[in-house]
Design a protein around this nucleic acid. Structure first.
Length: 498
RNA sequence: GAGCCACUAGCUCAGGGGUAGAGCAUCUGACUUUUAAUCAGAGGGUCGAAGGUUCAAAUCCUUCGUGGCUCACCA
């Protein structure tokens, strides 16, 4: 093997140090190490004391972490170690640790894991530090870390090697801690309301519950193709039928679509269903929950995203889709129009539509092309055309529309909800219409799910349902402009060179 | 899928036809309260890949790769 020859100077130097340690009888990939404190604990326990007080206390600690910086000055030196909770400075003196350990300190590399024993003190300039009495290596890093000052900026490398990003870019770690807190706040909020968390299959024999292209896979033993789920909807509704009155799932869904700053092929969806509720209840739940999560995690509801200020405190504006279109474009789509008249109106106003679109599709196109991006403050848009809402109840006052809303913030869809259709006869008809769309070339139209229809025929209570794109909510709350910044390992094309 | 931009040392970046540069990091030496430590010296590059133009290409052209942004798609 010519591997050794290919190594750069830095990699060679580290391998030589590894060899040196082993020759000294030190195993550079050690085992269990019992710490007494992490850096956060040391700071909260000792930061408030003066130099003299700490001297007097002479408090012993055992700590471990990754070496992030080293400032050697002859027979003594300083180093910074980092653990999950933060960084702390070490002060290592030859006359405190002895020749042998000081020699290890001299040759230790940035990136190595070290374990130290010592006492807490403050330096002349007041920095809380550990005066090391025992110094050892816990694990050797054979590759150098990115620049300690500039961090890792290369976007591709940050996503491909997220561990490096997390080591050197503290704000990245903060985002993912917030992500975890947001999820926890969401669960706490729903659990407190009596919602029941479940897990349903992600392998589906029919990709239903949303309009999207699925990923296809294969089960060998059953010799059947399966789909990764594109929504959670139809299983949770089966549970509503089964008597779970308030139920939710937070889980991954997979859509075989393009990748951009707002889309990743797998993403996290919250779906919840509440028996006996309708659209209005779900609106209130949605705005209350989002407001509560912001308050709990950020301590405020007024947030800044890029250059915009957005207030997530309830109540959010509510507007019918047709009224919203009228507001923005001046076009009144309330009168009954034939499909052809609707398409002509669209053409007149620069709204792109295709031949086979009906009145309902045209209304939707008007909204998406003209209105969506204008909705900056949280806004519930309700009354979506029935043809694009095959799982929602019909508006009893106007059968062209449905009891559905979407929540828009900063021009982006954040939630989608219905008064759920619970009439199995109507549901079959809607599915059949979807199948017609499918045959006409819309490969994202819903397919008939006979098993789900059968379940509904046993009786489904009136139900309100909600879906929230969790990653987008996290983007909003962490001021992240790309979905990749809130996903630990966003999907990337595999690298070929190793 | 289309347009624009980027790709140079481990990392962050200069250099835009004429011998490949800096800071950090690395190596050697000095330094016992420094903190982007300091000082002195040294090493490190197939300039994303392949073609082309040219006496001469990191630099200009073409194709390809990877990524970013915008658009399209994603109700």
């Amino acid at each position: 093997m010519s591997q050794e020859v290919d190594l750069t100077d830095q990699l060679q130097a580290r391998r030589e140090k590894l060899k040196m340690l082993m020759e000294k009888g030190i195993h550079p990939f050690g085992g269990r190490y019992e710490r007494t404190h992490d850096t956060k604990e040391v700071r909260s326990l000792y930061a408030s004391f003066s130099e003299e007080e700490l001297e007097e206390k002479n408090s012993p600690v055992v700590m471990a972490g990754r070496l992030m910086a080293k400032r050697r000055k002859g027979k003594a030196g300083f180093a910074d170690i980092q653990d999950f909770s933060g960084k702390i400075q070490l002060y290592v003196r030859k006359d405190n640790v002895g020749d042998e350990q000081y020699d290890i300190f001299k040759h230790i590399d940035i990136g190595d894991f070290v374990g130290v024993e010592g006492t807490v003190f403050k330096t002349r300039v007041g920095e809380l530090s550990i005066k090391v009495t025992r110094f050892g290596i816990l694990s050797k890093a054979l590759r150098p870390l990115p620049d300690k000052f500039h961090g890792l900026k290369d976007v591709e490398q940050r996503y491909r090697q997220r561990y490096l990003d997390l080591i050197v870019n503290p704000e990245v770690k903060r985002t993912f801690i917030l992500r975890s807190q947001i999820l926890k706040a969401m669960r706490d909020y729903l659990d407190d309301l009596g919602y029941f968390e479940v897990e349903t299959p992600t392998l589906h024999s029919i990709a239903g519950g949303a309009a999207a292209r699925p990923f296809i896979t294969h089960h060998n033993a059953l010799n059947i193709d399966l789909y990764l789920r594109i929504a959670i909807e139809l299983h949770l509704k089966r549970l509503i039928i089964g008597g779970f009155e308030k139920v939710y799932e937070i889980g991954r869904v997979y859509r075989n679509e393009g990748i951009d700053t707002k889309h990743n092929p797998e993403f996290t969806l919250l779906e919840l269903y509440a028996a006996y509720d309708d659209l209005r209840d779900i609106m209130e739940l949605t705005e209350n929950m989002i407001g509560a999560i912001a308050k709990k995690v950020l301590g405020k509801t007024k947030i800044t995203f890029e250059d915009h200020e957005v207030d997530l405190a309830p109540q959010y504006r509510r507007v019918h889709m047709v009224d919203a279109i009228k507001e923005v474009t001046g076009v009144d789509l309330w009168p009954h129009l034939s499909d052809k008249e609707a398409r002509e109106l669209a053409a007149e106003h620069g709204v792109e539509v295709s031949e086979n679109m009906t009145y309902g599709h045209v209304v939707n196109e008007f909204f998406e092309q003209k209105v969506e991006e204008t909705l900056v403050q949280p806004t519930f848009v309700y009354g979506h055309p029935l043809v694009i809402s095959p799982l929602a109840k019909k508006d009893p006052k106007d059968p062209r529309f449905s009891d559905r809303f979407e929540l828009f913030i900063l021009g982006r869809e954040h939630a989608n909800a219905f008064s759920e259709l619970n009439d199995p006869i109507d549901q079959r008809k809607r599915f059949e219409e979807q199948m017609k769309e499918r045959e006409a070339g819309n490969d994202e139209a819903h397919v008939i799910d006979e098993d789900f229809l059968e379940a509904m025929e046993y009786g489904m209570p009136p139900t309100g349902g909600l879906g929230i794109g969790v990653d987008r909510l996290i983007m909003l709350l962490t001021d992240s402009s790309s979905i990749r910044d809130v996903l630990l390992f966003p999907l990337m094309r595999p690298k070929e060179d190793h």
